[in-house]
């Protein structure tokens, strides 16, 4: 395997201290609250978290598609090849969407327009961004469809979405996303609406396409199984903040944050059976009413006094592994974190 998780790769996309808030009658919801991460060339980063943790809002913020007027990006930077996307004009931003950064959403049935043919929809980014001359569009679309393993693509250009199966529809959405040759693909739970055997096929295809076209993937999910198949690194989100960043290997072997650990343990697995799940009591907080300090503290079995007062600083544990938790916060004079991690 050529996982170069530790080798330095020029960050293609860098998100710095991103803040997206929702201003509603019930108060301010800090959906994304100081999120920072970077995505290297042809790397795949997973954004893992439960519903409402802000993972989807993070991805929508990158493309500046936050639902308005309630939602607003109030701070931070989204650097794509060094250029801050948050400062671009709407016209310039349109050149980025689809052309540089494309997106796949969860439900292919609602992504595809039921009254346009498959051929039209895959061709749209090609036409908008004038990728190929008008006469070459048809051929390119057929090629894209065969790339996503649609059998006899030429004969299916005039078909409508309802004539395709669920797995095929999601592959068509994938073809549309990569049609303008983007560098970054944001995939927001692309497999949740698919059956398990179809999921496995889809992830394998995504991996192949990534390899062939040097794509960087930001993969948004709540599912550890699919994440393990597609991602090199993972950022774990809870209540609008990234609480831990680490490689996929480290995620399964040595998670440091109590939330990550609990999440791993609470997932039903097939390779071992337990009588009772070590479940996390309570439920994730609402972003409108976050507790002071670490948002996980009320549910955390190892919470201390300081956790309820102050949000922990981000501590680097080892290469590519950082965590925001007081259990691991380093004393400035001491280089070994408290309760030190076992190194492999």
């Amino acid at each position: 395997m050529d996982t170069l998780a530790n080798a330095p790769r020029a960050p293609l996309l860098e998100v710095k201290d991103l803040r997206t808030y929702f201003f509603t009658r019930w108060g301010t919801g800090k959906a994304v609250d100081g999120v920072s991460f970077s995505l290297g060339e042809s790397e795949s980063l997973g954004l893992l978290g439960e519903s409402g943790c802000g993972k989807s809002m993070t991805s929508l913020s990158i493309l500046r598609l936050v639902p308005r007027p309630a939602g607003r990006i109030v701070g931070g930077q989204v650097l794509f090849r060094g250029r801050d996307l948050l400062r671009l004009s709407e016209e310039e931003m349109r050149q980025v969407r689809g052309r540089q950064i494309a997106m796949i959403l969860q439900d292919p049935l609602s992504t595809l327009n039921p009254v346009f043919t498959i051929g039209d929809q895959v061709a749209e980014p090609l036409r908008v961004h004038r990728i190929v001359p008008r006469s070459g569009v048809r051929e390119r679309v057929a090629k894209l469809l065969s790339l996503v393993r649609i059998p006899a693509p030429e004969s299916r250009l005039k078909d409508y979405p309802h004539q395709f199966s669920g797995g095929m529809r999601q592959r068509v959405v994938g073809a549309t996303a990569i049609s303008a040759g983007p560098k970054v693909l944001i995939a927001d739970e692309p497999t949740t609406s698919l059956d398990v055997t179809i999921q496995a096929q889809y992830l394998r295809l995504l991996k192949e396409i990534q390899r062939e076209s040097n794509l960087s993937i930001l993969y948004i999910t709540h599912d550890l199984g699919t994440l393990a198949r597609i991602c090199d690194r993972v950022a774990v989100m809870y209540a609008g903040k990234i609480v831990e960043q680490l490689t996929v290997e480290a995620l399964f072997e040595r998670p440091a944050h109590p939330y990550t650990e609990a999440l791993l343990q609470s997932v039903p697995r097939m390779d071992r059976k337990v009588h009772r799940f070590p479940s996390i009591e309570g439920s994730p907080p609402l972003v409108h009413a976050l507790p002071p300090g670490c948002a996980f503290a009320p549910r955390c079995p190892r919470a201390q006094d300081i956790c309820r007062r102050e949000f922990p600083p981000v501590t680097k544990l080892d290469d590519g592994h950082s965590v925001a938790c007081w259990l691991h916060a380093k004393d400035p004079h001491d280089s070994v974190p408290a309760g030190s991690q076992e190194r492999p």
């Binding site: 395997m1 996982t3 199966s165 797995g167 095929m168 059956d195 398990v196 055997t197 179809i198 999921q199 496995a200 096929q201 992830l203 394998r204 550890l224 199984g225 393990a228 198949r229 490689t247 996929v248 290997e249 399964f252 997932v267 697995r269 097939m270 390779d271």
Partner: peptide
């Protein structure tokens, strides 16, 4: 095939058990 497709594959494990086609 169902079990193989659902098993959380650890990093580095080849997933050669993908079953082809659809229902």
């Amino acid at each position: 095939a169902l079990i193989a497709a659902a098993l959380p594959v650890r990093a580095g494990t080849p997933d050669d058990t993908v079953v082809a086609g659809e229902v």
